[in-house]
Computed example of a mutant assay.
Amino acid sequence: MKLERELTRDMLPAYWAERHTLFGAERADLSKLKQIDSVGLAFLVQWSQALAAGNKALTLISPPTSFYPLADLYGVSSLFELTDNTAES
């Protein structure tokens, strides 16, 4: 699933409306995103937890640089598989 809108508080209502579709996808391509805030990170955590309930993991493809310090700060890095678009080629 390729995400086109920033994962921020302002965009959360649009993402939340799509959660039933999004939460079924095991891959989230974040390569187009420039920003993720704490609300966006919480959304990714919920997505990961929804998949974990079915023994699946969420793979994040090319998260923006803002993802890493937030994930480390909140201690949630281990909830995600991380990869880069270059690995997809």
Rank of each mutant, 00 (worst) to 15 (best):
F43N: 01
A28K: 02
S38Y: 06
K32F: 12
P64C: 00
Q49R: 14
G40T: 07
A28T: 01
K56T: 03
K32C: 12
E26M: 11
F43R: 06
K56A: 10
S38Q: 06
L58W: 00
K34T: 13
R27P: 08
L60N: 12
V39K: 04
A57T: 15
F43Y: 10
G54W: 00
A50F: 07
A28V: 04
A52Y: 01
L44Y: 03
S48K: 03
I61K: 11
L51D: 02
P63G: 08
A52G: 08
L41H: 05
L44D: 08
L33Y: 03
A57N: 15
A52K: 13
V45G: 06
Q35S: 14
A42M: 12
L30K: 07
K56Q: 13
I36E: 07
K34V: 05
F23V: 03
L51T: 02
Q49V: 11
V45F: 02
A42V: 09
T65A: 15
Q49M: 14
P69Q: 02
I61W: 08
L51R: 02
L33Q: 00
L41Q: 06
A28G: 01
W47M: 01
L30Y: 08
A42I: 11
G40E: 05
T59H: 08
P64L: 05
F67C: 10
Q35M: 14
T65N: 15
P69A: 00
D37I: 07
P69V: 00
R27C: 13
Q46R: 15
F23I: 02
T59N: 13
